[in-house]
Design a binder for these strands. Structure first.
Lengths: 149, 149
DNA sequence: TGGCAACTGTTGCAAATGCAAATGTTGCAC
DNA sequence: GTGCAACATTTGCATTTGCAACAGTTGCCA
């Protein structure tokens, strides 16, 4: 077996490689759907998290996403500018901010739910319903549903 | 059911969301291993592709990755500077470049294979061998193994 | 109380990325 | 062969991102 064949074999049998491709497809499809709402893949998970958790602190968001705090700080700048989220003074701490959705932001949530359901259905459509259930269950074992996003 | 509960339910039942988390973990683990070789997740797939396909054209790389050509052009700048890949004049076309691995780049390939195998094994380890086989097969149905990377 | 380490958030600067326009090349119809 | 559209690649510029340093706040213990 040549080095080239070996490299090819490694790639084709790599679960991670397939997962990367899958997520790339997923991202492309989501980006298209989100564009119609004026959103991007960078903004979308933030709105979802705030919609799910209600008032949260920036540090909390950062922890759950396993992302650095400065990154959240900057992403929020955009969402605040869009008028979708809002920084409010935290009720008990003067260093923390409470992040909440504006009415405009809240109105987005149901549409985002639809998009998520639609894109998931499309991506999974090559599988039979039983297979879809199988892969979902297996996936749940790989990425335990903690409070992490 | 409140809006918050609904958002939570959508997220937790979303296959795509789990896939995102999985790939994020995968990326983190790969980044750690690659760092020991002085590589990054941006450079790694390029070396793999050139190692697998031998001399390729930049446009071909771009097509296979479904990425814009300018992005490949810039990534190659870094890899050429690292002395891992090389731009050679194309034998038949004067506008195209032939991209090949330098000896130093070729020497990297076996180490990259090891890393891919190691990280895949670690990520899949929560599953039994039968389950690992199952999820791999299901995944193959979702992302057909074409010539696309 | 005073001091200090840990925490929350922001910012300046450098590196990376995306987009649109430019440069040169090629195939092909005329 | 000329002209022109499609191609392969690069580059200038604006936007985004990452990193390290900063400013302010809080908990805690001596």
């Amino acid at each position: 077996m040549t080095l080239q064949d070996e490299t090819r074999a490694v790639r084709l049998s790599s679960f991670g490689w397939m997962a990367q491709r899958l997520v790339a497809d997923l991202d492309r499809q989501m980006a298209v759907e989100l564009e119609e709402l004026g959103l991007t893949m960078a903004k979308f998970p933030l709105i979802m998290m705030v919609s799910e958790l209600g008032p949260v602190t920036q540090a909390d968001i950062a922890r759950r996403f396993s992302r650095p705090a400065y990154s959240i700080s900057r992403s929020l700048d955009y969402l605040v500018k869009d008028g979708l989220l809002e920084r409010r003074p935290h009720p008990t701490s003067r260093r923390a901010h409470e992040i909440v959705a504006t009415p405009k932001g809240q109105a987005l949530a149901p549409k985002l739910h639809d998009i998520v359901r639609r894109v998931n259905a499309r991506v999974l459509s090559p599988l039979s319903p039983e297979e879809q259930q199988q892969i979902t269950l297996l996936m749940e074992k790989l990425v335990p549903n903690e409070d992490r996003y």
